[in-house]
Design a protein around this nucleic acid. Structure first.
Length: 390
DNA sequence: CATCGGTTCTAAACCACAACCTGTT
DNA sequence: TGAACAGGTTGTGGTTTAGAACCGA
């Protein structure tokens, strides 16, 4: 695979995909629980079609991210089967990813050899089939990702504290979504039902509710334009800012890098300008994604990390790196480029406004009169403001 | 490999004006 | 304390344009 060739980490050896335990030559595609063996498609077909007993062996696909561990969850949004580690890493990246609906991976049924073994995602059983038919799987896309994407992903990786670091310093990472503490909770969310998970669920659900409620509240009236009522606008703004701060804090992995020697002034993150086309929906959680994506240092400043061995890419295992690349791609995939309309009324005015070479032009008196007549006509049609005349 | 010219792509700027915000009375 | 008012600020979309990026010679 391309990514395996591209990401040897300079070491010269390929430590990415686990090789088949049988032939030791091909990359494994499935994990046989009964045999506790990682098998390539060829060996899997050969072994598990040998007899009925073998054909009943439960097998699961290999994680599409790290290609080294059995997949545990199927993300329907990503249409990807992921191991627990990659699943937690990817889906704890941001609230949006967190909302992805995942289901536990079911064992592969006895006969799967009619499907191409090189496309494990495309033959995932059950719900994902339709998505595969829709071409939703990104396997091919992943293979065609160019070097720029890899570079961008690599630079993006630099600002994330490593999971290893988080593990070693649990006192500092307990509030991080990207850290292991939350990862564990996150895993609990999937697999277990601990009290912590419930608490987290409640908090997260509450936060989501608040988060989802903000646009409806603040953009009442014509459902977009904010409604001011007794200073409510201020409160809503504060609530919005608070939520954004919360998210920035929870997602503030990049900010926290400053604690370990790499310091971007906080104001710098705000000084980065981005067009309205990039900013996405204002109250949406993707705002955090955008802001985070802009916290990447310029390419020329990578040497700033030299003094911080914790964050050097060399510390990343191939598994971690692939997971982070996948997470990056996930975020990239979920970027929202549509422009945010905060005030529909302004939009309406702008659309009806006369233009000269795209620029707004002054309205002539005739146009003003026409508009007044139209508005009067509307009032008449709607039955308001009618003064009967005889 | 570096340079040059042409082409393509991207993002900022521009405009008027209603809505919004903030401070003052 | 809340209402009223004035003045400054913001946001809106289509087009243009400057500059970056790309590509072949």
């Amino acid at each position: 695979m391309l990514k395996q060739e591209d990401n040897t980490g300079g070491g010269g050896c390929n430590t990415w995909a686990r090789v088949c335990d049988t032939c030791r030559s091909a990359a494994c595609t499935v994990y046989c629980r009964a045999d506790s063996a990682y098998l390539c498609s060829g060996c899997d077909a050969r072994i598990h079609t040998a007899n009925k007993v073998a054909s009943r062996h439960e097998r699961v696909w290999i994680c599409e991210a790290c290609e080294r561990a059995p997949a545990a969850f199927l993300c329907k949004a990503d249409a990807a089967s992921l191991c627990t580690t990659c699943d937690s890493d990817i889906h704890s990246a941001n609230p949006l990813a967190r909302r992805h609906h995942r289901v536990p991976i079911m064992p592969i049924p006895g006969t799967l050899y009619g499907t191409p073994a090189t496309d494990p995602g495309g033959s995932i059983i059950g719900q994902a089939t339709e998505e595969a038919e829709d071409g939703f799987f990104t396997q091919d896309v992943d293979e065609t990702i160019d070097e720029n994407d890899e570079d961008e992903a690599a630079s993006w990786l630099l600002l994330n504290p490593t999971v290893k670091t988080s593990k070693n310093n649990s006192s500092n990472n307990e509030m991080f979504f990207g850290g292991d503490v939350v990862d564990d909770e996150y895993l609990d969310l999937v697999e277990y039902s601990s009290s912590q998970e419930n608490q987290y669920n409640i908090n997260h659900h509450h936060q989501q509710q608040q988060h989802l409620a903000v646009p409806q509240k603040s953009y009442g009236g014509d459902s977009v334009v904010p409604v001011r009522s007794g200073g409510g606008g201020k409160d809503q703004l504060q609530l919005q800012l608070q939520l954004q701060n919360q998210q920035s804090f929870q997602l503030g992995l990049d900010y926290e890098a400053s604690n370990t020697g790499y310091a971007y002034p906080a104001s710098m993150s705000h000084s980065v300008s981005f067009s309205s086309m990039d900013c996405g929906v204002v109250p949406d959680s993707t705002m955090s994604d955008v802001s985070i994506s802009h916290h990447r240092p310029p390419k020329g400043t990578i040497d700033l990390f030299v003094n911080n061995p914790i964050q050097t890419p060399q510390q990343l295992t191939p598994m971690d790196r692939e997971a982070r690349v996948l997470r990056y791609r996930e975020k990239k995939k979920t970027r929202k480029f549509e422009k945010t309309i905060r005030y529909a009324s302004r939009k309406a005015y702008a659309e009806t406004r006369p233009r000269i070479k795209g620029r707004f032009a002054k309205r002539t008196d005739v146009e003003i009169e026409v508009n007044q007549m139209l508005s009067t006509a509307l009032m008449v049609e709607s039955g308001y403001g009618i003064v009967p005349s005889f």
